[in-house]
Design a protein around this nucleic acid. Sequence first.
DNA 1: GTGATGAAACAGACTGGTTGGTTTGGTTTA
DNA 2: TAAACCAAACCAACCAGTCTGTTTCATCAC
Lengths: 221, 221
Amino acid sequence: MGKDGTQTKRAILDAAEQLVFRRGFAASSVDDVIAAAGVTKGAFFHHFRTKAELGQALVERFARRDRAHLERNLARAERLAGDPLMQLLLLVGLFEEDIESLGSEIPGCLFACYIYEAQLFDARTLDIVAKGLLAWRDLLRPKFEAAIRNCEPQRPVTPDELADQLLATIEGAMILGRSHRDPTLLPRQLRQYRNYLELLFARWMPAKAVPNDLALADAER
Amino acid sequence: MGKDGTQTKRAILDAAEQLVFRRGFAASSVDDVIAAAGVTKGAFFHHFRTKAELGQALVERFARRDRAHLERNLARAERLAGDPLMQLLLLVGLFEEDIESLGSEIPGCLFACYIYEAQLFDARTLDIVAKGLLAWRDLLRPKFEAAIRNCEPQRPVTPDELADQLLATIEGAMILGRSHRDPTLLPRQLRQYRNYLELLFARWMPAKAVPNDLALADAER
DNA sequence: GTGATGAAACAGACTGGTTGGTTTGGTTTA
DNA sequence: TAAACCAAACCAACCAGTCTGTTTCATCAC
């Protein structure tokens, strides 16, 4: 066991996150959390003054990881391609890979969980959620701006709309995938989003220059 | 007041639905529900044997209304246009109108609420949720099949994928719209979906035949 | 028309268990 | 010594659900 309590704290956060994904925050009692984490009540309230504080710490950690994941894949895409549009298409492809590598597990989003129980949380916690969702706009905006600048899209669109659409696709497809217990639903919806980007920016290059099938494996080198 | 209990029952269901939209099912106690509905505990447990029974009745009613709403707009679209693809584009446009007419209110989806608290509900209730979400596939499948048959799409797609995409767009955009308190986000995402359908089936007719802007007002006549 | 009857529609006090959270008092480890 | 725990008793508030009535109203004999 960790001497400095970070392991205990992480065990509590991990257990709580899993519980919240499955039954929501309200129905995940402190007793449930400590039982799942294998710690005592004393330990819990040593690390978190209230359950609300756990809720905030939970979504803060999730927001940090979510942003890091997006930044990491964006950096990868930037290394693999020079053109902003190519980078975006690649980014979505990398997401598809990530999700497919999870096997039959369907990822969840703590932001969405909190939105559906919004009244339980204070303004500070909900602000973390909102900022976490807006981070996608902020990080993708320059790319979409460049793509729109480089090639007039077939339909009038804004960068924020396209960024929101990626996030909305993920959120919506996670809900459907969970209900139908179909792990392929989310990556297939991401594929639809990629299709849209390709068709929207179709005039970007002459015919063959945008390959129908993005050769991710090749680009990897 | 109605002598038969239908009014009371509806008041309970209405109040419960609003509460569940705002704070989820677990956090909506029976006491909260009866307070919001303005009825007593006796009345509540006269109409519902348990809270779980309320949960089931709630989602049953929602599924019935959701399906009816989809069927109604689909019938409208069928009356206004003959071609299946046109009908689909029109359907999405009608949804946009519906949502814009709500003003600053952002609609919620009980299906999504339940998915995010899935462990609280029994298999029968979750089955109603799953069937309610699958109804979109069932009702839209013939249209997408016809559209794909009539015009080879620019990318390989299945009817179910396109039906799921509409639903996922709505679900995801409702989450984002709620977080950012932006009632325009959902209709604008529906617009993106419509863009995708238009570009995907672009070869449907020569150039000018698919108007960039669907003249809904004209079609209304 | 009147009054008895029975069933559904409530009203609201009550109960036993659970909730988030506290407290106390100790043990382990850098 | 101080921080990181553990164990368990304890609390007031709240929870779903029960219980014992009371009101309302259609039905039907008279």
